[in-house]
Simulated scan of single mutants.
Amino acid sequence: MISLITLDALQTLDAIERRQSFAAAAEELHRVPSAISYTVNKLEEDLGVALFDRSRRKAELTATGRLVLEQGRQILKASEELTALARQAADGWEAELRICIDSVLSCDPVYDLIKAFLCIQPKTEIRLSEEVLGGSWDALSDDRCDLIIGAEGAPPATGFALHSLGKVDFEFAVATGHPLAKLPMPLPASAIQDYPTVIVADSSRRLPVRSSGLLDGRSRIIVPTIGHKIEAQCKGLGVGYLPLHRIRQELAEGRLELLTVDAPRPPVEISVAWHRGDTGKGLMWFVERLKQMQFDPDLGTLTRNP
């Protein structure tokens, strides 16, 4: 069905209402007044409704005319945004950039990058997501994101470009005053088995799920993110390995304490990754800046290379 209301007609109504006269609207739109009158008359004829009340000295919008104008301005705005997006895409900038952050990292340094990016390219929509363990690789493989920050371990397949950010240290932690803290160190696996282990669930949808720091505990408490795992262990619900940089405040506040075990968990390498063939300007902007950064285990954040 062909719409009876054109963008030209909506622009004309908008100009008339803002300038408060047909003549002023004609001047703004660089047309003769008769062309403005013709556009309005034609639209009224096509719709079968009166858009202006001409019984007064100055034409005013009717209730129907006001409705058409208010809804029409939304259409005009959407048209302008679509035009901008088309030009943006033609210039190589993405309309949307999907960034996945692994749960092992905090979002703070990424927020700083986004703020800087939006200063130069505010039209690109940034969509953030959080994944756990293999879920980061799964999101990239399944095209649910364009860039992953903090992905753990090796990629599941070829076709990805990577930049190593460094290694994350994990330590065995329990709530302060936990019974395990009273035992001789290092703790044997047999001692740990007496208490629930808090496990972060892998968020993969298609790839095989990964396990991380599993302990042969009597029972398990499964949580969705590292943040939930930290809180659960602070409350004494269970025990397990935690990324050291994420629990420095809890350690300082006395909510958690570190224990040594006879089977410590080795550091985990984390990376930035993206599809090798993807060269969008927004993606490359983030990649180039992330290539200049490394994970600082002492500060617990991403920092620029010296």
Score class of each variant (00 low, 15 high):
Asp14Phe: 08
Glu17Ile: 06
Gln20Asn: 08
Ser21Lys: 12
His30Met: 10
Ser34Ala: 14
Ile36Leu: 08
Tyr38Pro: 02
Tyr38Glu: 12
Thr39Asp: 08
Val40Pro: 09
Asp46Pro: 05
Ala50Gly: 12
Phe52Leu: 12
Arg57Pro: 01
Glu60Gln: 11
Thr62Gln: 04
Leu67Ala: 09
Glu70Asn: 09
Arg73Glu: 13
Glu81Tyr: 07
Leu85Pro: 02
Ala86Ile: 13
Asp91Val: 01
Asp91Cys: 00
Trp93Pro: 07
Glu96Phe: 10
Ile99Arg: 05
Ile101Gly: 03
Asp102Cys: 03
Asp102Met: 02
Leu113Phe: 12
Cys119Phe: 05
Glu125Phe: 08
Glu130Ala: 14
Glu131Tyr: 01
Val132Gly: 05
Leu140Glu: 07
Arg144Gln: 15
Arg144Val: 09
Arg144Glu: 14
Ile148Phe: 01
Ile149Lys: 08
Gly150Ile: 02
Ala151Pro: 07
His163Ser: 11
Glu171Pro: 00
Phe172Ala: 00
Val174Leu: 04
Gly177Phe: 11
Leu180Glu: 01
Pro188Val: 05
Pro188Gly: 05
Ala191Cys: 06
Asp194Arg: 00
Tyr195Ala: 00
Val200Ile: 15
Ala201Asp: 13
Ala201His: 09
Ser203Asp: 04
Arg205Ser: 13
Ser211Ala: 11
Ser212Gly: 14
Leu214Arg: 12
Leu214Gly: 11
Asp216Ile: 05
Asp216Asn: 13
Thr225Cys: 09
His228Pro: 01
Leu237Tyr: 13
Val239Asp: 01
Leu242Ile: 02
His245Tyr: 04
Glu250Ser: 15
Ala252Ser: 15
Glu253Gln: 13
Arg255Val: 06
Leu258His: 01
Leu258Trp: 00
Val261Trp: 00
Pro267Trp: 05
Pro267Asp: 02
Ser271Gly: 02
Ala273Leu: 11
Trp285Lys: 05
Val287Thr: 06
Met293Pro: 07
Asp298Gly: 12
Leu299Met: 14
Leu302Ile: 05
Leu302Tyr: 08
Arg304Trp: 12
